[in-house]
């Protein structure tokens, strides 16, 4: 399962101290991945290994009564001992339902309290309901959870989430599962500039350049699911995303050259040329 990618799991940013700190946790990888929409559990694991991700989101759903309980379980292919499992409240439309779902998740994961809060406001766009998200976040934080909150790209809402104690704010690049990339880099830029907790792009990434752009903007990490799972070759795309996030982070840390809008700037010396014909 994905062995060739395991051995190629090389890249960390040049600065080994460049850890991603979320709440009380520290990570090397700045790519967070979902576990949904894969062909089967084997492909799920291969892609996740290929991505180099340490944090993997899962959904919480009713068990199927009457179904064979011996069938392979997601957590047997992405064991909590090997990955940081990040349960989400995807599919919830009310704060109360999100809180219940994440309390069940904490029980399921033996007390681990790092969660992804997602409260939706609309079934067509899956746009987040920010008043309900804020309400749920307050309850969860009071109850001892470390809340990573999926949110709109509105800097004021993001600041409110930080102010009430969320450990990360996770604005959408574009609609969940849309693959449309970062539609409003300026808003994301404002959120990055003002935030004192990690800013993680969550939702909307379509391909590797989208992830690189997010990191070049200065995002702390990128979370994606469909971009990998719905690629024709998910395992290869997982590796592409790993490399894009590393490249984007390095480019951000390196500091890009200034843009010259109206003139060129030769890379070669302008003197010492052979005798040229007059122009």
């Amino acid at each position: 399962m994905g062995k060739q990618y395991q051995t190629e799991k090389t890249g960390q940013p040049m600065n080994d101290m460049d850890a991603l700190i979320i709440g009380e946790h520290s990570f090397h990888s700045r790519l967070l991945v979902g576990s949904g929409k894969y062909r089967d559990l084997e492909q799920t694991r291969s892609a996740i290994i290929g991505s180099g991700a340490e944090i993997v989101t899962v959904a919480i759903r009713r068990t199927n009564i009457g179904q064979n309980s011996n069938e392979p379980n997601l957590l047997s292919v992405i064991p909590p001992g090997e990955f940081t499992i990040l349960p989400n409240s995807a599919g919830c439309y009310l704060a109360e339902d999100a809180v219940r779902t994440l309390r069940l998740a904490r029980e399921l994961l033996e007390g681990r309290n790092l969660v992804k809060l997602e409260v939706l406001g609309d079934a067509k766009t899956l746009y987040p309901n920010m008043p309900e998200t804020l309400k749920a976040a307050k309850i969860l934080i009071k109850d001892g959870f470390e809340v990573m909150a999926y949110c709109s790209d509105d800097p004021i809402q993001a600041r409110m989430l930080e102010d009430i104690g969320c450990v990360a704010v996770m604005p959408l690049a574009s609609l969940i599962g849309s693959g449309m990339g970062i539609l409003n880099p300026w808003n994301i830029g404002i959120i990055i500039e003002q935030s004192h907790v990690p800013v993680i792009i969550d939702a909307g990434v379509g391909t590797a350049s989208d992830a690189a752009i997010a990191m070049e903007l200065g995002c702390d990490a990128v979370l994606m699911n469909s971009a990998i799972a719905h690629a024709s070759d998910p395992v290869r795309m997982a590796r592409a995303m790993m490399n894009a996030v590393i490249a984007g982070r390095d480019a951000f840390l390196a500091g890009r050259m200034p843009r010259h809008h109206y003139h060129g700037d030769p890379s070669s010396p302008t003197s010492g040329l052979i005798e040229l014909n007059e122009q």
Binding site: G34, S35, G36, K37, Y38, T44, T57, V58, A59, I60, R61, R62, T63, I65, N73, L74, L75, I85, P87, N88, A90, T101, L104, A105, L108, L109, I176, G177, A203, L223, M224, N225, S226
Partner: peptide, 10 residues
């Protein structure tokens, strides 16, 4: 009674 488990999701 609600009984839940973890499944694939984003």
């Amino acid at each position: 009674i609600e009984i839940v488990s973890a499944i694939g999701g984003g």
